[in-house]
Amino acid sequence: MKVALVGAELEENLGIRYMASSLEARGHQVQIIPFNSESDMEEVVRVVLSHSPELVGLSMVFTSRGREFCRLAEALRKGSYSGHLTAGGPFASFNCESLLRDFPAFDSIALGEGETLICNLA
């Protein structure tokens, strides 16, 4: 399965890399896509759509960027992304009910350690 993992890459995002290595060990193709600021949104959507992953995971680590990631999820859907869109990380976990209720772009919110969860989704 093709999987895209999207998150902040101002410094190496170890959480995304752990998930990527777990997926790759199980034979999945993974692309890590940096989303360092809202100005990256158009490029992230373009890269995701050109990669055509069946699963996209958004790493919602920072509370201050929660709304940006929600707008990114909506932009992916407006751009015709029809695969499974999930989010994880501290912000997503603490706000899982409201994210699923208020942002129908998300198919799921991952709670807990990402390596097993993302592999189970894939």
Rank of each mutant, 00 (worst) to 15 (best):
R67H: 06
F69L: 11
F69E: 02
R71K: 14
R71T: 03
L72F: 06
A73H: 05
A75M: 01
L76D: 01
R77P: 04
R77Q: 03
R77G: 02
R77D: 00
K78I: 00
K78S: 02
K78W: 03
K78A: 03
G79A: 00
G79H: 00
S80D: 01
S82W: 02
G83Q: 03
G83S: 06
H84P: 02
H84E: 03
L85F: 02
T86F: 13
G88H: 12
G88N: 12
P90C: 08
P90D: 04
F91Y: 14
F94Y: 08
F94D: 01
N95W: 15
C96A: 10
C96P: 06
C96Q: 14
E97K: 15
E97Q: 13
E97F: 12
S98I: 02
L99G: 06
L99S: 12
R101E: 07
D102H: 15
F103V: 04
F103H: 08
P104S: 11
A105C: 06
A105S: 10
D107R: 07
D107F: 12
D107V: 10
D107I: 09
I109A: 05
I109W: 08
I109G: 05
I109Q: 05
A110L: 12
A110C: 09
L111Y: 12
G112F: 10
E113T: 08
E113W: 14
E113H: 15
G114E: 08
G114N: 13
E115M: 12
T116E: 15
T116A: 15
I118C: 04
C119K: 10
C119H: 09
C119Y: 11
N120I: 08
N120Q: 13
L121G: 01
